[in-house]
């Protein structure tokens, strides 16, 4: 399993558009990508569950990636998060 943490710097956090784009990115891989904030967690392939996390600027999130292509998936998701969030 791969894991990284990130603090959201985007002004409005994970709203509809970034959640949707993130879900698209996560669907490119077979590994399970989870976004975790405190007690809440969501599969990154679900746009609505990501939005339901209510992730806003300043929140620290942990992303876990587990599966056959976890190295590539973790790298892609981390790059997406850094570029967009």
């Amino acid at each position: 399993m791969k894991e990284f943490t990130y603090v959201i710097t985007d002004e409005v956090g994970i709203h509809a558009r970034p959640a949707g784009l993130l879900a698209q990115e996560a669907k490119k891989f077979t590994s399970t990508v989870m976004f975790v904030k405190g007690e809440k967690s969501a599969k990154a392939t679900s746009m609505m569950k990501l939005m339901g996390m209510g992730i806003v600027k300043g929140d620290a999130i942990t992303v876990t990636v587990e599966g056959d292509d976890e190295d590539a998936a973790a790298a892609a998701i981390e790059a997406f998060v850094k570029a967009n969030l």
Binding site: V12, H15, A16, S46, M47, M48, K49, M51, G52, G54, V56
Partner: peptide, 29 residues
């Protein structure tokens, strides 16, 4: 399943896991 903090979008999960989003306006976040 979700209400945007800025109240402009609501997600509803329906029968058979349908995940519907109603988003009012463009860039209204």
């Amino acid at each position: 399943s979700t209400v945007a903090d800025s109240n402009h979008a609501i997600g509803i999960t329906g029968d058979g896991e349908m995940e519907l989003l109603i988003h009012v306006g463009i860039d209204t976040v």
